[in-house]
Structures are given as C-alpha cells and as structure tokens.
Nucleic acid binder design. Structure first.
Lengths: 183, 183
DNA sequence: CTTAATTGAGACTTATTTGTCTCATTGTAT
DNA sequence: ATACAATGAGACAAATAAGTCTCAATTAAG
C-alpha cells in the first residue's frame, strides 16, 4: 500500500524523537519505505526536517486555535482566560511528546523560524492578558512565563520517557506545578 | 604556550554549547590548537565528549557538596534544608549554561550514565527531605520535582541565550518560579 | 647553545552518509 | 489484459568528517 507524505512525516517524527541523529536510511526504514522513495518525497534531509518543523508549527497553532487564545486575549475576561489557559496547556501537553527533536535541529530555514516566532508571540500576548487579568503574577516577564511553559513541557517529556510518572498523571502534575510551584 | 587538557575541555564545552554538531576540526580551532594535537589528547570524538560529560558531573557534584546537601538531608532540619536548597539552586543556575549540549549527546558510556544517576539520586533524596520538612509540597513525586528543577534550568539557559531576561535577574526569576509557580 | 619534547600543517586513508540513477517489480486503473 | 505509475533494491559518485601519519617548526629544559 502507498505511504503518503503525511505518514512519512509522522513516522519520521516518531523515529527522530528516539534517535535524533538518525540517517535518511534509518528514517526510510522506520517509515517502511525504501530510501529511494523517501528521496522522491523529499529532495534531501533538509527538506524533510523542514517539513517536520512545519508540521510541529501546525500542531502548535492548532492547539492555540482550538483553545481559542486569540478570542480570549481580546475578551480580557478572567473566567474565559482561565478556561482557555487550561485548554491551551492541556493541548500542549498532548503534543509536546512529538516535537522535542526540534531542539537539536539547527538548520531550520528563516521563514519557518519567523513563523515560529509569530506563533510564540501570540502565546506571549495571551499570557500577558492572563497576567493583566490576575491569573498569572504580573511581576514576571511574559516571555519568561512562556519559556517556563516550554521548559515544563520538556520536563513532562522527560518524565514520561523515563517512566517516572504515569502518562495520565502528567497533565495534573504539569498544571499544578506551573500554577502553584513546588512549595 | 601550552594548552592543557582542562583548557581544551573548557573550550570544547563552550563551543559545543553554541554549535552542538561541531566537528573535531572546529573544536580544535575553538580551543586554539591543531586537529592533530586535539587527537593527541583525546583518541577520538567519543573520548572527548565523554570527558566533557565527566566534567559536567564534577561540576554538578561540586555544587551539591558546596551546598552541603548530604549533611542537610541527614539533619532533617527545616531551616538548614531551606538554606541548602537556596544554595543548591543558585549553584545549579550558575553552571547550567555550560552543560546544555549534553542533551543532544546519545553516545555516553554506561559508567558515566551510572554516575549521573547516582548524583541525581542524591539530589532526589535531598528534595524528598525538603518535602518531609514541609519546604516542598509532599504531594509531588520527588523525581518530578527533580525533573522540574532540570527543566527550569533549561528555561534559564534559553532565556539568557535569547536575551529575554538579564543574567542578573535569572536567579531570582528561577527561584521565584520554582517555589511559587506563576500564579 | 644544544637537545628533547611538543606542536602545527598538511597529506592520506577510511568510513559514513547523502544524493542520483537505473532497472526490475509491484500494483492499479482503464 | 494492457498500459501506466509508483516502489524497492541496489549500484554509483560526491561530500564530509574521523583518524593516522610524517615532517618541519617551535618551545622548553638542561
């Protein structure tokens, strides 16, 4: 049966998450296709990794949209912001396992990075709205809060990978730690 | 002038932190020595990276010892534990900038990983003592707390690298976020 | 000053990976 | 059944980096 481009991307993400330095041959094998076919879909490794990057951004943006952060930011309504924050963080926990490998990639094209900055910027603005609404301490730089979210997702990823915490406990631990800290 | 093995290690750490995929030639250039000399000190890339790993563990353990976590853990004295926790976290913030590149290395030898586990275990035990003393919430798994520390150090690293927060604000942000969360 | 050790520069081989190409095979649509 | 498209397998060249070696130059020690 034919393996679609999207399926290749999915398989590549999964494999690169466990083996970030995998060769094209390994990735092809992981996707269940030949190396030649992989090269028919993606000119080279760069194009493949770039495609994975765009997929990651799509997922991230989808989570933002499904949570409705733009509308919540505009509304400035504390109750709505709280709901949206919950939804956003839950969504991000759900997808964080797939995109950790991007941390080690340093050859991503400028337009992808620009898009990434845009999406992050939207999140920073949302978090700033949460701060103005009193949901998040106002004495912290919004960008720091955003980076903390990102870092805690790294913690989630690591913990699950090592088996320290059960997958189902993760959202609760994550949210609790994020909001209330550890003391 | 002669460049010592320790100096090479230091230079290699600094360079690999900005360019994790650097070749031996690049590392040699960064250390100000020739490729041949680099190979006289380290049989191969593996041996070099392993040496960097040991250096990182040394630094980590030194921070633990200077903070005195073993004694504090044994004492079970809340006041002492609080002091020690502060010292530990400050020390770890100070060294976290140097060892981020290890995240992308996957060829570290078993004995190094074992040593890493030992040092981490000591930290987990210390954090557990902090929990028993009421400094840290007892409803969180100690290992999760340990991973959160690690993750927040990632956030510190990222924030400083991107220039989002000033270096001098970092310890305060880090400690505040860790202990009290963001709400 | 002389000698020994260390280093730098560069040539060289080897290994790995990438990217291209060909051709036989498989699967599918008409 | 036939023709067309996609795939798999493998050969091949090019690129990159690792690792080894030699030799001249530099440095340090006596």
């Amino acid at each position: 049966m034919a393996v679609s481009r999207e399926q290749i991307i999915t398989a590549a993400i999964q494999h690169l998450n466990t083996t970030p330095a995998a060769s094209m041959a390994e990735i092809a094998a992981a996707a269940g296709i030949s190396r030649a076919t992989l090269h028919r879909h993606f000119t080279g490794r760069d194009e493949l990794v770039t495609a994975l990057g765009w997929r990651a951004l799509e997922d991230w943006e989808r989570v933002q949209q499904e949570a409705g952060i733009a509308e919540a930011t505009a509304s400035a309504d504390p109750a709505r912001l709280r709901e949206t924050l919950q939804a956003l963080l839950h969504g991000e926990v759900a997808i964080c396992h797939e995109h950790g490998f991007l941390l080690t990639e340093h050859t991503l094209p400028a337009d992808l990075m620009r898009r990434s900055d845009e999406i992050e910027e939207r999140e920073v603005e949302f978090l700033a709205a949460c701060q103005r609404a009193g949901l998040i301490r106002a004495d912290l730089p919004s960008r720091w809060v955003s980076t903390v979210v990102f870092a805690l997702l790294v913690a989630v990823r690591e913990s699950v990978r090592r088996g320290d915490v059960a997958q189902r406990d993760v959202p609760h631990l994550f949210l609790g730690t994020f909001l209330k800290g550890i003391s």
